[in-house]
């Protein structure tokens, strides 16, 4: 089993590629790998209350760990206590933790 770190900087309203990124992460998790999707910069936008983001909703239910950068949320006025179930706000330190453990990392 491999471990993957996806650093998602874009939102699905900016690029159709983002939904494909979610699908790739879900596919890796479905194949038994440990996968983290870390949302940062505009990547956090689909977590705001009322956002239409079916791709992210599907991702949450595939066993992928979905994390959000607290700073990016604050910049965009997104409350951490109103995130979708299955999405957790956290510090950027998690990315450094996972890089330091040698995860396969991809910047999206």
């Amino acid at each position: 089993m491999a471990k993957y770190l996806f650093i998602q900087t874009r939102d699905p309203y900016e690029s159709r590629q983002v939904d494909q990124d979610y699908e790739l992460a879900a596919g890796l998790a479905g194949a038994g790998n440990e996968v983290t999707m870390f949302l940062v910069q505009n990547g956090v936008l689909p977590t705001r209350r009322g956002a239409q983001a079916p791709g992210l909703q599907q991702l949450i239910h595939t066993g992928v760990q979905v994390l959000c950068d607290e700073f990016s949320l604050r910049e965009r006025g997104i409350a951490t206590n109103a995130l979708p179930v299955g999405v957790q706000a956290t510090a950027l330190d998690v990315v450094v933790d996972q890089l330091a453990e040698g995860r396969k990392a991809i910047w999206l």
Binding site: T9, V40, Q41, L92, D93, V96, A100
Partner: peptide, 13 residues
């Protein structure tokens, strides 16, 4: 914003 994020990562490290 990418550069800001990378600088934040480097700062943590």
């Amino acid at each position: 914003a990418r550069i800001t994020t990378v600088m934040r990562l480097i700062d943590i490290a």
